[in-house]
């Protein structure tokens, strides 16, 4: 295969051994801003998504995730900034963008009165796929999403997880270069969610780039190659899950003592302690080095000050810690009320 794209100043060669290191950007976003009236939903966002990766936007409800997805999928007009998907400008060449992508919307939107096959068939038809190609693709996708036994079942008779899988299959009908998923597992139990992750990994293995939004820590952590934490319309930090965690420190100690305030001061004076935050009852101590090297010293210093330690808890920084560290708040308080906004009541939102 020769030059597959020479748009926007970059040149990509595939499979020729040239520049194999340099992976192409399938999504490029530059200084994107978006307002609804006086509400600034997206505030000066820039990021790139590389070919073949799973990229996540992790953020609470109202962070601006859907707005970004809607702009990238050309469902919303871009107001300020630039965005290219698969090399095409979303403002100037929305038709080419649309042909390059698959979408799984935040809300369920299947035709409940049509069967699994018919839903896929319709999608293939509106994207002008030839009949033979449609038939073949439907078989592949039914297999991938394990819906073969349900091909003639009306969509309304599927379970929630199956409906989502059907939407996934539909998003992949046209073999898109990028698959967009807006909170694909919202409201599902953990088993269903993990199963969904498996499908997404499989899709990634087949070479599809995936851009997804989520407010589930584990989803960003376990599924994504790279994550952007987004809050109040801004990207706070971007990196791989490990990078983000390592940036926080190597280890994390939770301490409960008889005098947290004094202990915090003592610990801040230690060189290998990166940060100390005081919660109501406990102290969070982020370490720049391995905990084994510094724990004896910490214990010793606290004992010397005559303060009693009631609890010590050691762990690696998690995505939760990363999130709290960068946004200054947990995701919990921002969690959507799933009863109200879960996918089952499509159409109520927005």
């Amino acid at each position: 295969m020769g030059i597959i794209e020479s748009d926007g100043g970059h040149l990509i060669r595939k499979g020729e051994g040239v520049d194999l290191e340099m992976t192409a950007n399938v999504i490029e976003v530059n200084r994107l801003e978006h307002s609804y009236g006086s509400v600034k939903a997206v505030d000066d966002i820039s990021f790139n998504v590389k070919e073949g990766e799973i990229f996540s936007f992790l953020g609470p409800n109202g962070a601006g995730k859907s707005t970004v997805i809607n702009i990238l999928t050309t469902l919303r007009k871009i107001q300020k900034g630039e965005a290219r998907v698969n090399g095409y400008d979303v403002a100037k060449d929305s038709k080419s963008v649309r042909k390059s992508i698959g979408i799984v919307f935040q809300m369920l939107c299947l035709d409940h009165e049509m069967t699994v096959c018919e839903n896929l068939e319709y999608h293939g038809k509106i994207y002008s796929m030839p009949k033979k190609e449609r038939k073949e693709r439907i078989e592949e996708l039914l297999k991938l999403t394990e819906l073969e036994g349900k091909r003639d079942t009306l969509a309304k008779d599927l379970s929630g997880g199956m409906k989502r899988r059907l939407e996934l299959a539909r998003g992949l009908m046209t073999k898109p270069a990028v698959l967009f998923l807006d909170e694909p597992t919202i409201g599902f139990d953990i088993q269903t969610r993990m199963r969904m992750w498996e499908y997404l990994r499989e899709i990634k293995r087949e070479g599809t780039t995936i851009f997804l939004t989520t407010h589930y820590m584990e989803e960003a952590d376990q599924l994504s190659d790279r994550i952007s934490i987004i809050d109040h319309g801004k990207i706070i930090v971007t990196g791989t899950a490990d990078e983000l965690k390592n940036k926080l420190g190597k280890d994390l100690i939770y301490l409960e003592t008889s005098d947290n305030k004094t202990v915090a001061e003592i610990l801040r004076a230690i060189e290998s302690v990166k940060a100390v935050t005081e919660d109501t009852k406990s102290l969070r101590v982020l370490l720049g080095v391995d905990v084994t090297h510094v724990l004896p010293l910490i214990m010793e210093k606290i004992r010397q000050a005559g303060i009693e330690i009631t609890t010590v808890n050691i762990k690696k920084p998690s995505m939760d810690d990363v999130f709290v560290h960068y946004t200054g708040h947990g995701l919990r308080e921002g969690e959507p009320k799933e009863k109200e906004e879960g996918i089952e009541i499509a159409g109520v939102m927005e």
Binding site: T73, T74, L75, K95, R98, K99, I103, F105, M107, L108, C109, D111, H123, I126, Y127, R170, A346, G347
Partner: peptide, 14 residues
């Protein structure tokens, strides 16, 4: 429109 059925079609190149 209300039940988002149109979304798929409106988001397509049609």
């Amino acid at each position: 429109k209300k039940y988002s059925l149109l979304r798929e079609t409106l988001a397509s190149p049609v």
